[in-house]
Design a protein around this nucleic acid. Sequence first.
DNA 1: AATGAATGAGGATTCATTCAT
DNA 2: GATGAATGAATCCTCATTCAT
Lengths: 194, 194, 194, 194
Amino acid sequence: MPKVGMEPIRKAALVRATITEIGRAGSLDVTVSQIARRAGMSAALAHHYFGSKEQIFLAAMRHILSIYGAEVRGALVAAGPDPRARLEAIVRGSFTRTNFRREVVSAWLNFYTLAQTVPAARRLLTVYQRRLHSNLMHALVPLAASRAQPIAEALAAMIDGVYIREALASGAPDGMAAADFVIGFLDRELGAAP
Amino acid sequence: MPKVGMEPIRKAALVRATITEIGRAGSLDVTVSQIARRAGMSAALAHHYFGSKEQIFLAAMRHILSIYGAEVRGALVAAGPDPRARLEAIVRGSFTRTNFRREVVSAWLNFYTLAQTVPAARRLLTVYQRRLHSNLMHALVPLAASRAQPIAEALAAMIDGVYIREALASGAPDGMAAADFVIGFLDRELGAAP
Amino acid sequence: MPKVGMEPIRKAALVRATITEIGRAGSLDVTVSQIARRAGMSAALAHHYFGSKEQIFLAAMRHILSIYGAEVRGALVAAGPDPRARLEAIVRGSFTRTNFRREVVSAWLNFYTLAQTVPAARRLLTVYQRRLHSNLMHALVPLAASRAQPIAEALAAMIDGVYIREALASGAPDGMAAADFVIGFLDRELGAAP
Amino acid sequence: MPKVGMEPIRKAALVRATITEIGRAGSLDVTVSQIARRAGMSAALAHHYFGSKEQIFLAAMRHILSIYGAEVRGALVAAGPDPRARLEAIVRGSFTRTNFRREVVSAWLNFYTLAQTVPAARRLLTVYQRRLHSNLMHALVPLAASRAQPIAEALAAMIDGVYIREALASGAPDGMAAADFVIGFLDRELGAAP
DNA sequence: AATGAATGAGGATTCATTCAT
DNA sequence: GATGAATGAATCCTCATTCAT
C-alpha cells in the first residue's frame, strides 16, 4: 500500500462519496461520517484533507460542474463549426448519461439551495450559468440575430426546469428524451417568424 | 378575552413564520425555536399545534401551494372562456407578486429538496404539477391539438426553470417580466407550424 | 418539584460545581459534562443557561470575586475607622476560611491564566486588583503618607504570592498563619523609618 | 550533511518553540503540531524525540528553571562573599531580561497550574522553591539571624507575586524596576528592629 | 392554552498519538 | 532521521421533543 501521495486519491474518493450520499439522502443533511465511511476512511481524515464540511461540499460542486463542462466541451469539439450542430451539442451535453443521473440531478438541486447560503457555492453556480449563456449566445447569434438573447435565456431556464422536474420523477432519468424535448423547443423557436 | 379559537390563528402565524424563516435562511436548516419565536410563541406551543417539525414544513408547503392555486383560479375566472386568455392567466398567476416573492421562491426551491426526502411533501408537489398540467392541457387542446402535450410540459418546465433561476438572482424578482418572457415563448410555440 | 424559577438555582449550582471541578482537576481542562454532572443536570441544560463554557467560567470567576469582596467589606465594617485595623481587616479578609480553601486557591490560579486569553476574565481580575489597591491606599495614606503607594503594591504582590505558593503546598491551607505572616510584614513596613 | 547529532538540536528547537507558543497562547492549550511547526519539523518527529506532549512541557519547564538557576548562579559569583550583595544578586537574577520576559512569565504561570496536575512538574517547581529558599537563607542568616526564615519566605512570596501580577500587566515587563521594588522591601525588613 | 424546564441523541471538529515508508 | 497518513476518543454545542405546571 502506498503511503505517500494519497491526498488526490482520498480527495477524489470523498468527492465521489459526497455526491453519492447527497443523492441517496436527497438532501444536504449528510454527515461527514457518512461521507467518510462511504469513501472508506475516518471522518477525521476527511477533515484533515478538506478542513470543513463546507469545503467538501464545494469540492463536490466543483467536480460536478467540471464534469458538466468537460462533457459540453467534448460535444462541441465533435460538433464542428455549424451553429445548429453546436447548439444541439450543448443541449445534449447537458443530458449526458454522466450528468443526467439520479444522484447528480439530486446533488444539482441541493447545490442550488446551498448557493443561497454559501457565497462560494453561489459563485460556482454563477460561473456555470455564465458559461452556458456564453456558449449558447455564440451559437445563437448567427441563427437568430436579435432574438438570440431571449432564446438563450429560455433554453437555460428550460434545461434547469427539466432538471428540477427530474428530481421529482419516479423512473430512471432518460437523458435522450430530455434532450430531444429541449431541442424540439429550440427548433421551433428558431423557425418562428422573427 | 376568550382563549378559544386560538388554534387557527396560531397555526397561521406559524406557517407564515416558517416561510419567512426559510426564505431568510435560504435553507430548511431552520429551528423550531426560530420559527416559534418569529411567530411570537414558544417552541413547545408550536409542537403542541403541529406535532412535529415535519408537519410544520408540510403546512407551510400546503399554504404556498394553496395560495398559488387560488391566484391561478382567480385569474382563470377573470379570463373567461377564451383558451389563449386562460393560458395567459395561468402563466401570469404563476408570477403574481404574492407568489413570485424572494422568500416564496426560496421556500419553493427548498420544498423541492424536501420532496426528495419526505413522501408527503413529494405528494404535495405532484398534486401541484398535475393540476398545472391539467389546467394547461384544457386550454391548449383547442389551440394546439396533438402538440398540446409537449407544449404543456415545456411550459411547466420553463416556469419551474424561471423560478429556480430567480433563486440565484440578485435583484428583486420581477414577476411581470418573467410572465411576459414565458408568454412570448408560448406564443411562438402556438404560432409554429404544427 | 417546582418547575419554574429554576434558573438562579441551576446557575448557582453550576457555578459551585465549576469551582469544585476546577479545584479537583487543578486546571481549566474540565468538561462541561463534568461540571453539569456534578451540578446534577445534563450538559445541554448547562449550555441552555450559560450559552457557552466560557460564560460558565466567567460566572465562576465573578462568584469567587464577589465572595472575596463581600468578606473584605464585612471585615472592614467590623474594623471601624482606625486605619491600622482596616488594613488588618483587608488582609484577614483575603485569607478567610471561605476564600483560602484549596479549591478556591486553585481556581484563582487558573483564572489568572484564563485572564491571559479571555479579555472578559482579564477585566474581572483587573477590577479586583483595582479595588484591592484602592482599599489599601485609603488606609495606608494616613499611616505612611508618601510611602503608601509602594507599600500597597508590595502588600498586593505578597497576597498574590502567598496564594500562588499555597497552590503548590501539600497540607491544608492555614489562612490564619498566612494572614499573620502578611500582617507582620506590613507592620515592619509601617515601622520602618520613612 | 551528517544527520547524526540532530537530537540535541531538534530537542532544543522544540523547547524554545514550546515556550514561545505557550507565551503566545497565554495557556497550555497549545497543540503539538503548533509547537512542531514553529520548531520547523513535523509533529511526528516531536513525538519521536519526546515521547509525549507532557514530556515536551516538562522539558520546557526544565529549560526555564535551568536558565533561571544559571542567571542566579552567575550573579552570585559576581557578587562575591558579602551577604547583602548576594541577596541583591539573587533578587536581580530573578528579574533578568532573559527571565522576566513576557513569554517566560506567561510560561511560568502556566507551569504553576501544570504542577497541580502533573507530579513531575510539581517536583520541578518544588526544587526551584527549595533552591531559592536555600540561597536566601545562606545570605540572610548572617544578616537577620532568627528572622532569616520569615524574611526568606516573604521574599520568595513577593517574587512570585510580582511575577504573577506581571502576567496581567499591559506594558513590557520592567525587570529593573521590579528588582528595585523587591530590594527596597528587603532593605526595610533588614533595617527593622529585630 | 401556554411555557419554562429538561434531556438524549447526534454532529462537526480537534488532537495526541501511531505506523508504514 | 523524518514525515505524511491515519484514527479513536473526546468535546462543545445544537435541537427536536417531552413533561409538569
